[in-house]
Design a protein around this nucleic acid. Structure first.
Lengths: 348, 348
DNA sequence: CTGAAAGCGCTTACAG
DNA sequence: CTGAAAGCGCTTACAG
């Protein structure tokens, strides 16, 4: 048998009955004090709160959730945090949901889509935020299962065709176009594209916007190289692209992490100067994009606004399950730095 | 009034009674099937599982937690993810605890220590992992409150004097010594130290190990500059240190992020060569340390092993609350890269 | 091996 | 405004 150390108090936390006894009121009175919207006299409120504080009472969320059918829990599904902005994103979500009085359960490991759903359902999550799962098809299946269950769902930074879920993304297509226009303004027309191999909606839209803008300007169609969405993947795709098309004078990387790998490879392996020989534009504006070595021109995505929007959208869906799914695209902006040459004055 | 969309099934998930009815058995039989360690005939097991699958039944974790007094929830307290290894760390924790059959609640935003504790206690967390809170004193107070409640607690990558909690860290002192010995082997004796301003145990031990090893070799006492533990902080501290001590030929940065900022500042602002003029050693081995531009010599910390150890330690503490607090230090190793010159042959 | 039943700690109509 | 009481969906001795 184990014995508790002397200095630790009894493990069992105080219940509303303990508080009621100490305050000399009924248990239901205690419950009302802790449930906004119920009527209680100030005097009773006072006494109950004092007793609760004395006992360190916090209402048992399990009992509350079981009885009221509002679990107060939101699940965030996220694995392989391949985007360096994501840690901040998780924290921002936790903050936003805690402001809503909800608690975040992190679903970061699971055998398959069914397993993920079981974890979500076990604690009766009121809603789900889905960002990156290990593989795209896995994300898609989880989203499908949630929708089928009628579970409020928001897709963060991705969309799936045929799945009627709300989503929040950056204005990826517009961002791609901005990148193209900036390169054109800098006098670069022979551009290549580097992107992650997973065919996500995000990557598709970024590329789409870039290609359309280039075509509209009469520039040659940019060749595309795809590889893992990582520093090493960027180096690899950059090597492939310049190997096949040595005369490219610009690269658009659909993710900053890849841009950094590309830049280092260009400089350290291929001996090309950035931006003099090859200009590089990224997408995301991750912290390291601003570092002196890279000084990367990129499309800034406003994750704070995106998270805010997604958390609100999920809260709305929870409050009104009949609400139709909607999509929000948050504005992006180009941050011009040293990996692109200064724009030329426009010909008069 | 809201109406559900036609294609969404009823919101209320199946209960064990629903499963029992469909399978033609008692509710307690269903419960037993889902609770390992109870006796059930294979035949009944079969029928129950089939019925459960048909209804998409997952036992209500709230009811189970309420009744059995084992919530199955572990809280991870973590904010300001200033260490680029932490995203992976969170994911690894989620994985480890899910293997234990537990679910992770992320406590990433709170008003103060009491608020954090209330969130931990609300869902009756069986244990707590504490990593970085916004400020050091906040972490310390949360740890104190947990210990006072008798809540199983593991400190990750930090220790607090006077708080009897289990902890897992890297061998920080040994790592500091390795850094010093490597610099000495490379022929550098005039070293400076750059570290984050928060007086964490981690930073203290890393510096301590470095200084002792330098002193043991008869090298001059290294001056120390402290700043925010970030890329910019590294640049700032590097500038201050070399301004005051221009003849330094080596820098030990107690965190890789700072080392990267220092290196860029040395090269791009001060026009110093790394490693020729100044050698730089970091600590952590974050992904960007390996990037071609930085190629940072650093002390590798094995977060996979640390998380494994911490999760096991917490599980043990939950199973046996009488168990005394223990500390585990996980071995580190030096990764020699290009930010330090090649070691010289030892004088015969 | 199986079922009937108590009870975990709350919330929430329902009386008063 | 307050209290008595039912009941959320399970687990777990207790009989059989």
């Amino acid at each position: 048998m184990t014995r508790r150390r002397k200095d630790t108090p009894p493990a069992r936390p105080a219940t509303s009955y303990d508080v009621a006894r100490l305050a000399g009121v009924s248990q239901s009175a205690v419950s009302r004090v802790f449930n906004p919207g119920s009527y209680t006299s100030d005097a009773m409120r006072e006494r109950v709160l004092r007793a609760a504080a004395a006992l360190g009472f916090t209402p048992n969320g399990f009992a509350r959730g079981l009885r009221s059918d509002r679990s107060g829990i939101v699940s965030i599904v996220m694995t392989t945090l391949d985007n360096p902005n994501y840690p901040g994103v998780i924290e921002a979500f936790a903050r936003a949901f805690q402001r809503q009085g909800r608690q975040v359960a992190l679903i970061a490991a699971f055998a398959d889509a069914e397993d993920a759903l079981a974890r979500i359902v076990r604690y009766r999550s009121e809603g789900v935020v889905l960002t990156a799962a290990t593989r795209l098809d896995l994300s898609r299946r989880i989203a499908g299962l949630c929708v089928r269950r009628g579970l409020p769902l928001v897709l963060y930074n991705r969309r799936f065709r045929g799945i009627a879920a709300s989503s929040v993304t950056a204005e990826n297509e517009a961002g791609g176009a901005m990148a193209a226009q900036h390169l054109l303004a800098c006098g670069r027309r022979r551009a290549g594209i580097i992107a992650g191999s997973e065919p996500t909606s995000t990557v598709r839209h970024r590329i789409g916007g870039f290609v359309s803008a280039m075509r509209a300007a009469g520039a040659p169609a940019p060749p595309v190289a795809r590889a893992a969405q990582s520093y090493d993947g960027g180096a690899e795709a950059g090597a492939a692209l310049l190997g096949a098309h040595p005369r490219l004078d610009a690269l658009f990387c659909a993710a900053d992490v890849m841009a950094l790998g590309t830049i280092d490879h260009l400089r350290h392996r291929l001996g090309r100067r950035v931006p003099d020989d090859v200009a590089v534009v990224g997408f995301d504006d991750i912290p390291s994009a601003a570092w002196a070595t890279f000084d990367l021109t990129t499309i800034h995505t406003d994750h704070a606004a995106m998270v805010e929007q997604a958390a609100q959208s999920l809260a709305d869906a929870i409050d009104d399950p009949g609400r139709p799914a909607g999509h929000a695209a948050v504005a992006v902006r180009l941050v011009a730095r040293g990996s692109t040459p200064p724009p030329r004055p426009r010909p008069a």
